[in-house]
């Protein structure tokens, strides 16, 4: 963050869409690695990984967003997100593209009144020269709200 109303976002690809993730919550970006399955958990948690001795659960945004399951390729990355200390979480993305700076003027609030369950996952839409980027509301994505779908 250089100035108050400017934020840096990491732009990632997920299917055909671009998503922006506020850089201040990103702890690390790692390559795909062996994921240990954890039985009997929410379906979008694909398992846990070991990042320097810390065990971090990994969720699939694709499954969470109802897209087809991840196909792990050479560009697949896991973003380690920390929205609070001592509670990291990994999210799988197809590709990490670049880092952009957005100020408030270039961010549009998500459509209000939208009934789409996915709307709580977004905090806004950023306008870039090369297109639109959906900004993820990490709190909404990470914290489990079972009743949203109900």
């Amino acid at each position: 963050m250089k100035e108050d109303n400017k934020r840096q976002y990491i732009v990632v690809n997920l299917g055909v869409e671009q998503y922006g993730i506020d850089i201040q919550y990103v702890d690390n970006i790692v390559r795909m690695q062996r994921i240990t399955r954890v039985p009997l958990v929410q379906p979008y948690f694909v398992g846990v990984i070991n990042i320097r001795g810390e065990i971090i659960p990994v969720m699939s945004l694709r499954i969470k967003f109802g897209l087809e399951p991840d196909k792990y390729t050479g560009t697949t990355r896991i973003l380690i997100i920390k929205i609070e200390p001592q509670a990291a979480i990994g999210i799988i993305v197809d590709e990490v593209k670049n880092v952009v700076v957005l100020d408030d003027e270039n961010i549009e609030k998500p459509l209000s009144g939208s009934n789409d369950e996915k709307s709580i996952y977004l905090s806004g839409v950023g306008k870039l020269e090369e297109g639109l980027v959906s900004l993820l509301n990490l709190q909404g994505v990470i914290v489990d709200k079972e009743n949203v779908t109900a």
Partner: peptide, 22 residues
Amino acid sequence: IGKYINNSKLISGATILGDGEI
């Protein structure tokens, strides 16, 4: 194994083995 994962009681935690595997 982390706070957000909605764990069943069957798994009490995890450990890291010598080769880094969990």
